[in-house]
C-alpha cells in the first residue's frame, strides 16, 4: 500500500482526501482499555455532567489518533511522519445511542519545506464545530 506520493507532485494547497469517522460510546470504552486512560469523563455520563460537561466526551488523544489517519492513509507509510501536534480546543461530545457522534477530518498542504518535507494542516470538526486547533503534521516524501 505504497501510495507513491512524491514531493515533486505536491504544491501548497494540495488537498488530501478527507474522511468521516463515527465515534460511539463503545469506541470510547475500547480506547480506555487500549490506551490505559480510564478517566470517568470518557465513559460515565453522571461523572461527566457533574463537572460541567454536556455529556461523555471522547479522549482528546483518540480524536488526535483518528485525525492523523487522513495523512497516514494518504502517504501509505505512516513512518514518514516527522512531526504531529494538535491543540484540544473543544471536546467531542458523545451522546448515548448507537450512532454517537461523527468526526469530520480534512487536510491540505500548507507549506513546502526543505529535505522533501511538507507541512499539512488538518481540520477536525464534530457537529459542525472545530475540535482541534493548530493541528499540523510534517511528512517527509520521496
Amino acid at each position: 500500500m505504497v501510495a507513491g506520493i512524491r514531493y515533486s507532485d505536491i504544491a501548497v494547497g494540495t488537498e488530501l482526501p478527507g474522511a468521516s469517522f463515527p465515534l460511539a460510546r463503545v469506541d470510547l470504552v475500547r480506547y480506555c482499555g487500549a490506551s490505559g486512560d480510564f478517566n470517568v469523563i470518557h465513559w460515565h455520563e453522571r461523572s461527566a455532567t457533574s463537572v460541567g460537561l454536556p455529556n461523555v466526551i471522547a479522549h482528546g488523544m483518540l480524536t488526535m489518533a483518528e485525525a492523523i489517519r487522513v495523512v497516514t492513509d494518504w502517504v501509505g507509510d505512516p513512518g514518514v511522519l516527522v512531526e504531529y501536534g494538535v491543540r484540544f480546543t473543544r471536546p467531542v461530545v458523545i451522546p448515548d445511542g448507537d450512532h454517537g457522534a461523527t468526526l469530520d477530518v480534512s487536510a491540505k498542504v500548507t507549506e513546502l519545506l526543505d529535505d522533501n518535507c511538507v507541512k499539512i494542516t488538518i481540520t477536525a470538526s464534530s457537529e459542525g464545530q472545530t475540535v482541534l486547533g493548530k493541528a499540523q503534521a510534517i511528512v517527509r516524501l520521496a
Binding site: 505504497v2 475500547r30 483518540l62 489518533a65 501509505g76 505512516p78 513512518g79
Partner: peptide
C-alpha cells in the same frame, strides 16, 4: 483497532516488512 486504523502496516508483518520495517509499527499516537 481502538483508534479505527485500517492500514495493514499496523496489523500484518508482511505489510510492515514490505515497507522496510522488521516488524509491525505502531500508530503515531
Amino acid at each position: 483497532r481502538a483508534v479505527g486504523e485500517k492500514n495493514p502496516v499496523f496489523f500484518d508483518r508482511e505489510a510492515a516488512r514490505a515497507l522496510g520495517y522488521h516488524d509491525l509499527i505502531a500508530p503515531p499516537t
